[in-house]
Design a protein around this nucleic acid. Structure first.
Lengths: 199, 199
DNA sequence: ATGGTATTTGACAAGGTGTCAAGAACGTGA
DNA sequence: TCACGTTCTTGACACCTTGTCAAATACCAT
């Protein structure tokens, strides 16, 4: 039948770039269509709705991001791993110019708007899923560290705490845009979890 | 001088209720006008723009909220004070049905949208200001606690850490809606900052 | 009472989402 | 080779949003 005139993945990348930069509600399908060189109607035909397009684009991002995190959490001492984890997290928030913030956190906060507009339950699950998987990754890292005597404490509680702090960093990034501050909080958190100096 | 047919503060309260519940972008001035029994044009005449209306409504909320926090942080042992602080914070996120989340965090994440739509620099400052004032409050509480020997550590760093965690709680609330989880993280944070059992 | 002034009201423009019918383009079967 | 059928594309439409403006209105003050 008639072939698409655009590349599915290209559109997903272009769309996510805009969603990330301007937020979901702040990005119109006209913006994306213009950037992608596609008619707006073709996007509706291919994806169904703005939210469906966002979801596909976000899943792409989430998969890529998880892989990168997994790599960062997989080498060196526990302290090094956690440091790499926070570094990556903060770099992610601060990427772009101006910095784009955390897409997951931003998306999460756009939930529950008026009917029709805004993200709904399906999007919430996608965001929650990434947060859960990151938490599991951190928890596994802590558990492994505990076995090697680098950490004593409850891995599950500590992982949740660490992930909560990263979500807080995403918020403070939007409030103050103060990257050194974010890194200080990260270092402080690692000290708190691992014990001030040892680890 | 024709007098206003509506009460300025009533509109502010009604508007903030909706902004809080549905987000700024998710709330239309038509919604507010209907709820307040006012013509949409009158709102523009009185407030200038949706964002200006939101800012006034938010400042009201911020002032009230700070007073409540101040009270909660002012009595009992340091541990009691911090517990009350987290309790209040979480209760605030979980108020309403369905829970409305944290208005500051939600607003912060709606920043930087497309031109025209969305919140801008002035709103960012309002959000940042509340976060800063809360941080100062917590820091003062920690300093006072330190003088009484209830806390040893850097009050500024610890306050920033605590506030970062509360911002993270606001995000996790949206992701999972799991209030016990939030309270666990809060308790864990207090233990971490004050030392597992003492304090 | 009457003029001046601020508020209200309704129409408008510009731009957003989503729908739909009609036109266009290609793969496939004859 | 050709025509059919299926899919994609395109443009018009309905309905929503924000924000502006002129005209009508209602009150205070003189």
């Amino acid at each position: 039948m008639r072939p698409r005139e655009f590349d599915h993945d290209d559109v997903l990348r272009i769309a996510f770039e805009q969603f990330w930069r301007k937020g979901v509600r702040g990005t119109s399908l006209s913006d994306i269509a213009r950037d992608a060189g596609v008619q707006r109607g073709s996007l509706y035909n291919a994806f169904g709705s703005k939210e469906a397009l966002f979801l596909q684009a976000y899943e792409r991002y989430a998969g890529d991001y998880l892989l990168v995190l997994q790599k960062a959490l997989g080498a060196g001492s526990l302290r090094k791993r956690l440091t790499a984890f926070f570094d990556l997290t903060i770099s992610n928030f601060r990427s772009g110019s101006p910095p784009r913030g955390c897409p997951t956190t931003r998306g999460l906060m756009e939930l529950g708007a008026a009917k029709g507009e805004g993200l709904d339950e399906e999007a919430r699950q996608a965001f929650a899923s990434l947060v859960s998987r990151i938490t599991a990754l951190v928890q596994d890292t802590l558990s492994a560290g505990a076995e090697r005597g680098e950490f004593s404490g409850n891995p599950a509680a500590a992982a949740l705490h660490i992930v909560a702090v990263t979500r807080g960093l995403a918020v403070l990034e939007r409030a103050f845009g103060d990257e050194p501050q974010l890194r200080k909080i990260a270092a402080h958190t690692i000290d708190l979890v691992l014990g001030k100096k040892g680890g």
